[in-house]
Design a protein around this nucleic acid. Structure first.
Lengths: 265, 265
DNA sequence: ACCTGAACACCGTTCAAGT
DNA sequence: ACCTGAACACCGTTCAAGT
C-alpha cells in the first residue's frame, strides 16, 4: 500500500512506528530534500562541530543512509557551500521584509550599523559555522567574507553610491568594512569555541584548569584578569563607530574639495 | 653517487636507485626528526594546499611510510599545531636577533609597524598556512590570532606598558590590533587562494572565465573593474596608520587628564 | 522515484613484526 | 632504535540492486 509519487496528497506515507526516536528533531525517515538536509547540517555543526560532520553521520541524523543524500547534494564540498549560503541568507529572513538592507534604512550609516549587527547576530547564533563563512572560497575573487553574496555587495555599494560616495570610495569602504567585520567576528567566535573546548576536556581538576605558568611573563601575569574579560560587544560597537567616522570624513572631504577622490583603506 | 647524509659517516645507507625522484627536496629516506617533518609539512601545504595534506602523503614526500611519522609526532592535529608554531616563529628568525620585537625598536609605533609587516610577510609567504594560523584553537582563551604565542603577547603588552599605556589601554590595543591584522591578512590570503583555484580549473575557455552575469547588479557592473584591483598593500598601511592614530589619541588623552583611563576597542 | 548494500579507494592510527 | 606490513574503524563516493 501507500503507493505514492511525490506530487500531492497521500497521508500516512510516513507511517512510522519506531518508538522512542526523540533523537534530534523527529528524524522522519522520509521526505528528504535539499533544504531539509542543509537545515540538518547546520544543526549538526552547531552542536557537534564542523569536524564531526560526515556524510554518514549527517545521513543518520536524518534517519537515512549517507548514500541517500547524494540524490539532493552533489557532495560534501557543495553541502558546505550550501550551509554557508543558507546561514548568510538568514540576514534577510527575520527582519520585516526582504528589502531591509536594500532600501529600508535611514541613511547609509544606519544601513552599515544594521548590517554589522545582523552579521554579528549570525556569527553568535552559529559560532561553529562562522569559520566556514570566513574561509570558503568566495563566488568571485572580489567577494570578501563575511559579505558573501553578490546581492549583499550590490546593496552595499548601491547604498553608499546613493549617499554620495564616489565609486572608488564606496569600494574602499566595502573593503575596510569587510575587514573589520571578519576580524572582529572571527575572533569573537574563536573565543567562544576555545571556551567550549576547555569545558569539553575537564582533564583532572575541575577548577584549577591546568593554567599555563606565567611567571616568565610579567606583563601577562599583571594583566591576566583584564585579558580574561570579555568586552567583545563594546569593542565591536566602538570599532564600528570609528569606521563610520572615517567614512564620514572621506565623504565630506570629497564633497568640499571635489577635485580629488577620497581614498581609504 | 653523491651520497651525502648531513651528520657524518655512513655512506650508502641511502643507496637509492629509484631513478628520477626529483620530487620535492631530495627526499632522503632516513634521518627523520620532528623538525624535518614540520618543514616538510609546511612545504607540502604551501604547494598542494591544506586539504591535500595527509599523513600518508606527507610520509611519502619524506620517502617514508606514514606510520614512521608517529614516532615523532603524536598525530595529525598536533602536527598542524606544530606547523602553526613553526611558521609564527619565523617572525623572530630572520631579523638580526631574537629580541627584535622585544627591545630593539624605536618607540611603540615602530614596534607595532614592524610587527605588522612581519606578520604580513609570513601570511604572504605561506598563504595556504595562514588560515590555519587564524583558526586553530589558541593556547589560552585570551590569545588572539594571529598573535599566537605567549611570548609575542607578552612583548606586545610590555612595549605598550613601557610607553605609558595603562593596562586596560594596552589590553584594548592588543585586541584592536589583532582584529585588524586578522581581518586584513585573512582576506588578503583568501584572495590569493581564490585566484590560484581559478587558474587550477580552466574549464572551457581560457580567457572568458565563465564570468558571472552581473546584469542584475548595476552597481557591481559599474564598479567591477575597481573591485578587481588589488590595493591590499596600500589599504594595509592606511588601516595600520589609522589604528596607530587612535592609539596615540588614547595615550595622550590619558596623559593629559589622568583621571580616567582611555578605553578603545 | 527514492533509498540501500556492497564495493572502491583512501583516511588516521595502532601494534606486532622485521632489520 | 627506527621503520614497515597488516589490520581496524572510518571516510566520501559510485552504482547496481531493491522496493
Amino acid at each position: 500500500m501507500a503507493t505514492t509519487s511525490d506530487d500531492e496528497r497521500d497521508p500516512d506515507l510516513i507511517a512510522v512506528q519506531e518508538g522512542p526516536q526523540a533523537a534530534q528533531e523527529l528524524t522522519r525517515p522520509a521526505g528528504l530534500d535539499r533544504e531539509r538536509i542543509l537545515k540538518a547540517a547546520i544543526d549538526f555543526i552547531d552542536d557537534q562541530g564542523l569536524a564531526a560532520l560526515t556524510m554518514r553521520r549527517l545521513g543518520s541524523s536524518l534517519g537515512v543512509e549517507a548514500m541517500a543524500l547524494y540524490r539532493y547534494v552533489p557532495g560534501r564540498e557543495d553541502l558546505l557551500d550550501g550551509v554557508v549560503d543558507r546561514v548568510v541568507e538568514t540576514l534577510f529572513d527575520d527582519q520585516d521584509g526582504d528589502d531591509v538592507f536594500i532600501t529600508d534604512h535611514n541613511g547609509w550609516q544606519d544601513y552599515l550599523v544594521r548590517l554589522a549587527h545582523g552579521m554579528r547576530r549570525i556569527a553568535l547564533a552559529h559560532p561553529a559555522v562562522f569559520p566556514l563563512i570566513a574561509s570558503r572560497p568566495p563566488a568571485a575573487p572580489w567577494v570578501r567574507p563575511p559579505l558573501r553574496s553578490l546581492r549583499l555587495v550590490e546593496s552595499f555599494l548601491g547604498t553608499l553610491h546613493d549617499a554620495g560616495f564616489s565609486d572608488p570610495a564606496a569600494v574602499a569602504a566595502y573593503r575596510a568594512y569587510s575587514s573589520f567585520l571578519l576580524g572582529h567576528l572571527l575572533l569573537e567566535v574563536t573565543q567562544i569555541g576555545a571556551q567550549v573546548s576547555l569545558l569539553d576536556q575537564p582533564e583532572g581538576d575541575p577548577e584549577a584548569q591546568e593554567r599555563t605558568d606565567l611567571t616568565e611573563y610579567p606583563n601577562l601575569l599583571r594583566t591576566e584578569q583584564l585579558l580574561g574579560q570579555d568586552k567583545s560587544a563594546a569593542e565591536f560597537e566602538e570599532s564600528l563607530e570609528n569606521l563610520l567616522d572615517r567614512l564620514e570624513r572621506v565623504l565630506h572631504e570629497a564633497k568640499n574639495s571635489d577635485g580629488e577622490v577620497g581614498d581609504l583603506a
